[in-house]
C-alpha cells in the first residue's frame, strides 16, 4: 500500500438534481495505481470514470471514501502535490479567444513553471506551428493535443489522462502511444482512461475496469487476460459435422459455426488434432483463441440486460449476474484462477 500513487477506497458520489432526482455515479469504487505503472481505466459510458477522476482532483465533492494522491489526502492536501500531477479530464475546454500559446502561458504563470516550457510542450504534441492561433479555430484533435500539452507542462510524476485519444487521428493515436511509453520509461506513472481497448492493451501494464460505479476487475493486464482464457481453439476441417461428432464423443465442449468449430476447455491443442487425426479427419487449421481486452471488457460489462434489446448506458450486467454487487478481482485470483 505504501507505493500507491493513487489510492481510492470506497469512493461514492451521487449527483442530485431538482428535476431528475438522484443519480449514483460512483458506488463504492476502489482503485490502486502503483508507482511506475501505466494503468488503464476502463468502463462503459456513464460508468463513473470521469466522476472518479474529478473527485480525485478535487473538482467534485465525494460523498464518501478515502482518496490519496502521491501520499497526500485528496482533496484536502491536494495543493501540496498538485505541482506533480498533470491531468486532463474529459475533453477539456479552453477559452476560445486565446491562442494555444497564451492558454498554456497563463497556466505556466499560475503554476510557477518557467514560461519557456510552453514552447517545448507545444512542440511535443505537434502544435509548434499552430500555437499562435486562437483555440476556437482548432480542430477537436488539436484541442485534445493542447490539453495533453497542458498536462505535460509541469513535468508531472503522475499523469492522469481521461480519454486522451478522443478525436485523435491514427497518427495522433500512435504519437500518443509513443508519448505515454516514453514518459513511462522516464518513470512517470500514468493513469489513462480510454475506449480504444486495443490501444490500452498495447500501452498499459495494469488495468482496472469499472461498471456502474464499481470495480469489476483489476490487476496486471496479462493476469486479467489469463483469467478469461477459456482455452478455446478454432478448428477448421473439411467435414465439420463429423468432426463435431468425434469431438463431442471425446467429451469436449464444442460450438459449431458456419465454417469452423470452437472447442473450449482444452489446455493442450494436441488433444484436438489427435482425436480427429486418429479417425482420419485432417485438421486444416487449429488456432488458439486468446482473449483480448475487448472480449474481457465486453464479457464483464457488455451484456444487454434484456437479450435482443439495444444495450442502454448504465445497463450493462456482468453475465449470469443480474445485480452489480459482484466483484471479480482477478488481480487477487492470479493466473491459475
Amino acid at each position: 500500500m505504501t507505493s500507491g500513487v493513487i489510492e481510492i477506497e470506497g469512493l461514492r458520489k451521487t449527483f442530485h438534481s431538482l428535476r431528475r432526482g438522484r443519480r449514483v455515479a460512483v458506488d463504492g469504487f476502489d482503485l490502486l495505481v502503483e508507482a511506475g505503472q501505466v494503468h488503464g481505466f476502463l468502463g462503459p459510458n456513464g460508468s463513473g470514470k470521469t466522476t472518479t477522476l474529478r473527485a480525485l482532483l478535487g473538482l467534485v465533492r465525494a460523498d464518501d471514501g478515502r482518496m490519496r494522491v502521491l501520499g497526500a489526502n485528496a482533496p484536502e492536501q491536494l495543493p501540496q502535490v498538485a505541482g506533480r500531477v498533470g491531468a486532463i479530464v474529459e475533453s477539456p475546454q479552453f477559452y476560445g479567444n486565446f491562442t494555444g500559446y497564451r492558454t498554456l502561458r497563463l497556466l505556466a504563470l499560475a503554476g510557477g513553471v518557467p514560461v519557456a516550457r510552453v514552447d517545448e510542450v507545444l512542440a511535443q504534441v505537434g502544435l509548434a506551428d499552430r500555437g499562435d492561433e486562437r483555440v476556437k479555430g482548432y480542430s477537436l484533435g488539436m484541442k485534445q493535443r493542447l490539453a495533453v500539452a497542458s498536462a505535460l507542462l509541469k513535468r508531472p510524476e503522475l499523469l492522469i489522462l481521461d480519454e486522451p485519444a478522443n478525436g485523435l487521428d491514427p497518427a495522433g493515436i500512435r504519437e500518443m502511444r509513443d508519448l505515454v511509453r516514453s514518459l513511462a520509461a522516464n518513470g512517470v506513472t500514468v493513469l489513462i482512461s480510454s475506449h480504444i481497448l486495443a490501444e490500452i492493451q498495447l500501452i498499459c501494464d495494469h488495468v482496472t475496469i469499472i461498471s456502474r460505479g464499481r470495480r469489476v476487475t483489476a490487476g496486471p493486464v496479462v493476469e486479467v487476460l489469463a483469467g478469461f482464457d477459456h482455452n478455446e481453439h478454432l478448428v477448421r476441417v473439411d467435414d465439420l459435422d463429423r468432426a463435431e461428432e468425434l469431438l463431442l464423443a471425446a467429451g469436449l465442449t464444442v460450438t459449431g459455426h458456419a465454417d469452423h468449430l470452437v472447442v473450449s476447455g482444452v489446455p493442450d491443442p494436441t488433444t484436438v488434432s489427435r482425436t480427429l487425426g486418429e479417425q482420419g479427419v485432417w485438421v486444416r487449421e487449429l488456432t488458439p483463441l486468446r482473449p483480448d481486452l475487448e472480449s474481457v471488457f465486453l464479457e464483464l460489462t457488455g451484456t444487454p440486460a434484456h437479450p435482443g434489446v439495444p444495450r442502454q448506458v448504465d445497463g450493462s450486467t456482468p453475465p449470469g449476474q443480474p445485480t452489480t454487487d459482484q466483484e471479480i478481482d482477478l488481480g487477487m485470483r492470479g493466473v491459475d484462477a
Binding site: 477559452y95 499560475a110 503554476g111
Partner: peptide, 15 residues
C-alpha cells in the same frame, strides 16, 4: 472563465 472551463484548468494547477 467558468463557462469555458478555464477555472477548472486553473484549479488543476492551484487546487
Amino acid at each position: 472563465d467558468l463557462n469555458s472551463g478555464g477555472v477548472v484548468n486553473l484549479l488543476l494547477w492551484r487546487p
